[in-house]
């Protein structure tokens, strides 16, 4: 199913809004992770605003699609997407990482309805997603399970235990969105703990692999559609992304993996993002013939 140019642009505008939310959250918290959340803004936009069947008014809806966030440290983007799709008031985003907040520094399922899973220690999400897939299979349920993961967490043995299990069990209701941004805390993944050839590894453990530009909304949506059509295997969507996307001084810089900008740096980031937002809005207006 393809999406119209207008819809793609509107989703881009939403991704831009999430990025601005993320910067405001990080500045307000004074700590947190910048690179991953900014890089996954389009993926979370596509999931929450186009791909997933879900109901923010009814977060426990039995038929909803499940989203497990494995690399919990990028939760700012999930919180922003949840607030903007109506799970909780947008103002609450600024409580992120603060005392008494429902928005913990790493996500806690019991703190916030709709959050689905607890995550932080890398490599734990995919196993939980598999458990949900197995339950769907036992109960003949139709929901799909999505799992957002990082490339860095492929250093963890548990990730490979889980990948092999899912491949062996042909879990076709499972789709992962892998943030291939090539950075981890100590540097670039191919310097710290090389993962390539990643696609071949996935295929060797019986996964269907789709590689996309993780900033191209249309490609994300189409890959998720393709995953739905693959019946004999789980699908991994390797999303090639730029960490820190949209903020020039953060893009591709490992040092911005786990850091928050100062108020001044944050304002610079917001200015760049506002300019990009303006550009998208103009394009939308042009398409609408306004």
């Amino acid at each position: 199913m393809t999406i119209s140019d207008l819809e793609a642009l509107e989703l881009e505008a939403t991704a831009n809004m999430l990025r601005r939310d993320i910067i405001r959250m990080l500045v307000s918290a004074g700590s947190g992770h910048a690179g991953g959340p900014l890089g996954m803004a389009e993926v979370f936009t596509a999931l929450y605003f186009r791909v997933m069947r879900h109901d923010p008014e009814n977060p426990d809806w039995a038929e909803r699609d499940r989203l497990v966030l494995s690399n919990g440290h990028i939760c700012a983007v999930r919180y922003a997407a949840m607030a903007r799709s109506g799970y909780f008031p947008v103002d609450e985003l600024l409580t992120y990482r603060k005392i008494d907040s429902r928005l913990q520094g790493h996500p806690h399922n019991l703190s916030l309805p709709g959050l689905e899973n607890t995550g932080g220690p890398l490599g734990q999400g995919l196993s939980q997603a598999i458990g949900r897939c197995l339950a769907a299979r036992m109960d003949d349920k139709r929901y799909r399970v999505f799992c957002a993961m990082s490339d860095g967490e492929h250093d963890e043995g548990q990730t490979w235990e889980a990948l092999m299990f899912a491949g062996n069990h042909k879990l076709r209701n499972l789709t992962t969105l892998l943030d291939r941004n090539n950075i981890q805390i100590d540097g670039h993944t191919e310097d710290v703990f090389p993962l390539e050839p990643l696609r071949a590894k996935y295929e060797a453990v019986k996964w269907h692999v789709i590689e996309i530009d993780g900033h191209n909304i249309r490609q994300i949506v189409e890959a998720c559609e393709e995953a739905k059509a693959v019946y004999e295997k789980p699908t991994a969507i390797i999303c090639h992304t730029v960490p820190g996307k949209g903020v020039d001084y953060m893009e591709n810089e490992p040092e911005w993996h786990g850091k928050a900008p100062s108020a001044e740096m944050g304002e610079r980031a917001l200015e760049q993002l506002r300019t990009e937002g303006e550009r998208i809005r103009k394009e939308i207006a042009k398409l609408r013939g306004l």
Binding site: S127, G157, Q158, A162
Partner: peptide, 12 residues
């Protein structure tokens, strides 16, 4: 490790 995680998902 995967076993424990899958169990958590099943429980949820």
């Amino acid at each position: 490790q995967n076993m424990a995680g899958m169990a958590a998902g099943l429980a949820m």
